[in-house]
Amino acid sequence: MTVSPRCAGKESVKKLRGQLFVIAAPSGAGKTSLVRALMQHRPDLRFSISYTTRPQRPNEVDKRDYFFVDERTFEQMAATGKFLEHARVFDHHYGTSKAQVEALLEQGENVLLEIDWQGAQQIRRAMPTCHSIFILPPSREALEQRLRGRQSDSDEVIARRLRDSIGDMSHWAEFDAVVINDDFGQATSDLAAIVAGETRRFSRQRPELRPLLDRLLS
Rank of each mutant, 00 (worst) to 15 (best):
F68E: 07
N110W: 13
E106V: 09
S97L: 08
I133N: 01
L113H: 03
V101F: 00
M77Q: 12
A99W: 13
R125A: 15
N110C: 12
D44R: 14
H93C: 08
R124P: 02
S132R: 03
E102K: 07
H131I: 15
I115F: 11
S48Y: 04
Q76R: 14
Q122S: 13
E75P: 00
F21T: 01
R46W: 14
R36G: 05
M77L: 14
E60L: 09
G119Q: 06
V111T: 08
D62A: 15
Y94R: 02
E60H: 07
F134L: 05
T32I: 07
E75S: 12
E106Y: 01
R36P: 07
P138R: 05
P26L: 07
A87Y: 02
P43C: 10
S139K: 06
S50A: 15
D62C: 14
S139C: 09
K98P: 00
D70T: 05
V89T: 09
L34P: 02
I123M: 07
T73I: 12
R57Y: 15
Q76I: 13
L136K: 04
F67T: 02
R125N: 14
F68C: 11
D70K: 09
P138V: 06
A29V: 06
Y94A: 01
I123F: 03
G95H: 01
L112E: 04
M39Q: 12
V69N: 03
T73C: 13
V101C: 04
V111S: 05
N110I: 10
G95P: 00
E71L: 13
A103R: 11
L136C: 08
R72H: 13
R88G: 03
P43I: 05
Q56F: 01
V101Q: 02
H86D: 10
H41L: 14
V101R: 01
H41Q: 15
D70H: 08
D91W: 11
P138N: 08
A99N: 07
D70G: 12
A24L: 00
D91E: 11
E106I: 06
F90S: 11
P58H: 12
E71P: 00
S139W: 07
Y51W: 13
A29S: 15
D65H: 07
M127C: 12
I49T: 14
T52S: 07
P137D: 09
A37P: 04
D70P: 01
Y66N: 05
K98T: 06
L45H: 11
P43T: 05
S139M: 09
L105V: 04
Y66R: 04
D116T: 12
L113M: 13
S33N: 05
R42G: 00
H41A: 15
I115E: 01
M127G: 02
L113Q: 02
Y66V: 02
P137S: 11
A37R: 15
F21H: 02
A25T: 03
Q118T: 10
E102T: 08
R46F: 15
V22D: 04
E85F: 04
R36K: 14
K31T: 01
H92K: 01
A99P: 02
R36A: 13
T52L: 04
H92Q: 09
A99S: 11
Q76N: 10
V69I: 15
I135M: 07
G81M: 08
G28I: 08
L105Q: 01
Q118I: 12
